[in-house]
Design a protein around this nucleic acid. Structure first.
Lengths: 143, 143
DNA sequence: TCGCATATGTTATACTGTAACGCAACCGTT
DNA sequence: AACGGTTGCGTTACAGTATAACATATGCGA
């Protein structure tokens, strides 16, 4: 994955792997250290010692990290989690299985689920650009 | 008191239609008059003329309406929409196709999508209690 | 270098949702 | 009808989530 750190030649076919800024890498680290999803304000609390003070600093970093596919937002929790794959470039839909007991999140990429979502959209003439699939329940450890 | 969580097959009949309270029916009417989802505060604004003043009045009514299956919450919008079926109180998962152009929402109940979600959960030992499936894109009219 | 796009810092504010309290209406039992 | 439990209602205050607006700084390409 070490790629084009010194962007000299722009082959525009893949997404450009840009280096993270200081705030972005602090926010990303905070999320990676935690297995569980964190709200923006929880991230802020962890980073106050590192000089971050305002929610906007967190939200801006999160926006960029999501663009890069390094972080996902869990709509049903208003929280954010580090991608468990190698940077989901965002093309394929991912589902999240969220344990209501321990809080762990499993990131699921499943071909058949995506295919059925595509089919049901097509059947209705709906042209999807983004899908949110979040399951709440009990994980294998907690059930 | 305990209702069956799954496999409750009232295909067409509506079940135990408890009467709505005054606030509940005002909130429900506000949602039905609108094709599009409304936030709690948008509902409140529409009902100020009818004597409602506080967000909590809206949220309490919404909670009950969701319990009854008359209203759904759209997590990705922080908004609420009237059920398009006859009270989805059967706990089958519904998906929502949300048009990013016109704001219309199509409520989709699809067997195959649900089956694949069940399967992928089972494969990972995850025991789901609730699923959120929300698609963003362009509806048939707007594409 | 200049110029532009992006990143940052800060303050203030908007939007979304609950806690806690007391009172009122309803309902099933005496 | 009186009691007592449950649910609903109204209000104030507040917690939690997210963005607007503005100013400054930093990096990078022409």
């Amino acid at each position: 994955m070490a790629k084009a750190e010194m962007g000299h030649d722009h082959a525009h076919s893949y997404e450009a792997p840009t280096k993270l800024t200081r705030n972005q890498s602090m926010v990303f680290s905070a999320l990676r250290e935690q297995e569980k999803p964190l709200t923006a304000y929880a991230i802020l609390d962890r980073l106050r010692g590192d000089g971050l003070r305002a929610p906007l600093q967190i939200y801006r970093a999160l926006d960029k990290l999501m663009e890069k596919g390094l972080v996902h937002r869990l709509e049903s929790l208003n929280a954010f989690v580090a991608c468990q794959h190698e940077a989901c470039s965002g093309h394929s839909t991912v589902a999240f299985a969220i344990c209501e007991n321990c809080g762990l999140v499993d990131e699921i990429e499943d071909e058949a689920v995506n295919r059925e979502i595509e089919r049901v959209s097509r059947e209705r003439g709906f042209l999807p650009t983004r899908a949110t699939v979040e399951l709440k329940g009990l994980c294998a450890e907690c059930r």
